[in-house]
Structure formats: C-alpha cells, structure tokens
C-alpha cells in the first residue's frame, strides 16, 4: 500500500518539477501576485491528479496543462472576485540608474505588461513565455488561428505604447531630479 502511494507521488513529482516554475511565472506575470500564483499552481496539480483521465493521449500535454491552468484561474476569480483591479500606480516609482539599464528596462517592461488588459497580457505570456504554438493557443482560447495572430499583434502594439510612455516618463523624472548632470548648453567660450 505504501509503495503504491509513494509511487504515485514520485510520478506526479516529475510533472511538478517540470511545470511548477513555468506555471508559477505564467500566473505571477499575469496577476502580479506571488502568493496567489503559488496557490493556483497547487490547484493545477490537484486538478491534474483528479482529471488525468481527461487527457487524450496524442494531444500536446503542455496545451492540456495550460487549459487546466486557465480554468483554475477563471474559477478562482469567479469564487473570489477581485475587490479592485491591479493598479500599476501602486508600485513605487522606478529610479533610473545608468549602471543597471537592463534591469530598469525589465522593470518598465514588466509594468507596461501589467498595464495591458488581462486578455492581451495573457496571450502574450502564452506565446512568449509558455512557448505555446499559435495553433495551440487558438484551441485553448477557442478562436481562429488568424484571430490569435491579430490579437498578438494588437497586444504587442499596446505593450510598445505603454513601454514607450513609461520610458519617457522615467527619463523626464530623471532629468528633473538631476539637472546638474545635464551637459552644459550654450556655454560661452572664453579665450
């Protein structure tokens, strides 16, 4: 009996090791909430255990997992509606530093992503980070392949705009805060 129990644990453990980080990142980038993301990852594995009979062999396993992941999140927010939507304004301002430009860009991009409407954010995450093919995403979202392409394009357009605005705002702030760092302009040449 114990052997049976340990055996099943070991096997689901293999799947857990493989998928927990990608799933966690999917949720955390989607919701911006680490604790909730961890809860949802647990829920996904419970559902894998419960509904494993519903997996049809021969279909992509990854897509099946993300189907479960989407449903888990939808069910969660149905049960516990959000009191208020996530507002990026709640985050502390990004402090520009030359030494960590890449870090700063990542931070701004993360915020730009969080500013997107959820459906746009989700589709970008699915194709960029979860490495799902467009056909798989179309099936997952229940829409046409061309619709997926259009949505990705629109999401990316919007992301670019937000990112652009955020970058400009940060630059302005930096210039206002440190005018002494600006190069001198129109200085007189004295001979």
């Amino acid at each position: 009996m114990l052997q049976v129990r340990d055996g099943a644990g070991e096997m689901l453990g293999v799947l857990f090791d493989r998928y927990q980080t990608p799933l966690f990142n999917f949720y955390s980038k989607l919701t911006g909430d680490r604790t909730l993301s961890e809860d949802l990852v647990q829920e996904v594995f419970l559902r894998i255990l419960k509904y494993r009979q519903s997996y049809r062999p021969g279909t992509p396993f990854r897509a099946w997992v993300y189907q479960i992941a989407r449903n888990a999140r939808i069910d969660h927010f149905r049960k516990f509606p959000r009191e208020r939507a996530f507002e990026p304004e709640m985050l502390p301002p990004v402090v520009p530093t030359d030494s960590a430009q890449e870090h700063q860009e990542a931070e701004l991009l993360h915020r730009a992503l969080l500013q997107l409407p959820e459906d746009k954010r989700e589709i970008l995450l699915l194709c960029r980070f979860q490495e799902l093919k467009y056909e798989e995403i179309a099936k997952l979202l229940g829409c046409e392949l061309n619709t997926v392409r259009t949505r990705i394009h629109r999401a990316l357009q919007e992301l670019r705009k937000s990112f652009h605005q955020l970058t400009e705002a940060t630059l302005k702030q930096a210039n206002a805060a440190a005018p002494e760092n600006l190069p001198p302009r129109g200085g007189r040449h004295e001979v």
Partner: peptide
C-alpha cells in the same frame, strides 16, 4: 519597435516559486 519590445520581453526575469511550494505539493498529494 514592436519587434524590439517582443525581444526585450526576454529581459523579464524567471521568477522562482518559494521552497514551500514543493512542501505544499507533497502535503496535497498525501
């Protein structure tokens, strides 16, 4: 720029779940 933003998305760090996550998973399984 759109393509550049897509590529820059790779700058976003891969976040790691806390070690408790595994413990909770084991408990759930049991």
């Amino acid at each position: 720029e759109e393509v550049a933003v897509w590529r820059k998305l790779s700058l976003l760090p891969v976040e790691q779940p806390s070690p408790m996550s595994r413990v909770r998973f084991e408990a759930m399984l049991q």
